[in-house]
């Protein structure tokens, strides 16, 4: 399946996502706070990557065709990273016309996986 790239995830995007999502945790938007918490800099909200995955999946699923899905956030996404979403089909249920996709988000620069998951969709 074709991949799709999002980003770079700039500080502006993190600020907009904080406002758009209501998640005001300063670890994502305030470098001073991130430093004091032992981080080298701010990092992206995991849910921003999941929102990118949702848009990526909408390229394969019918409108409203995303039934259920789950992801694990396995590495943080540093500020200014570019992310690439990929998927492949791992199951097909003929009786209800639903496919199961394996999902991956990787950092485009070093290929490191940041999010993995599965989705059940009606194509």
């Amino acid at each position: 399946m074709p991949t799709r790239t999002f980003g770079p995830v700039t500080r502006t995007i993190l600020a907009l996502y904080a406002g758009g999502s209501g998640d005001h945790n300063p670890i994502h938007i305030d470098s001073d706070f991130a430093h004091s918490a032992g981080q080298s800099d701010v990092f992206a909200h995991g849910m921003l990557s999941m929102a990118y995955l949702a848009q990526y999946i909408s390229g394969f699923a019918s409108a409203g065709g995303l039934r259920s899905w789950s992801v694990r956030f396995i590495a943080v996404t540093p500020v200014n990273a570019t992310l690439t979403c990929s998927a492949h089909v791992i199951g097909w249920d003929e009786s209800c016309g639903e496919a199961t996709l394996a999902l991956t988000v990787r950092r485009t620069d070093d290929g490191k996986r940041t999010v993995i998951g599965e989705a059940v969709i009606a194509p």
């Binding site: 670890i27 995991g46 999941m50 259920s68 694990r72 956030f73």
Partner: peptide, 11 residues
């Protein structure tokens, strides 16, 4: 909240 990470999410 400085010690918080999001581990998993399902819908």
């Amino acid at each position: 909240i400085a010690c918080l990470l999001h581990g998993e999410q399902a819908f």
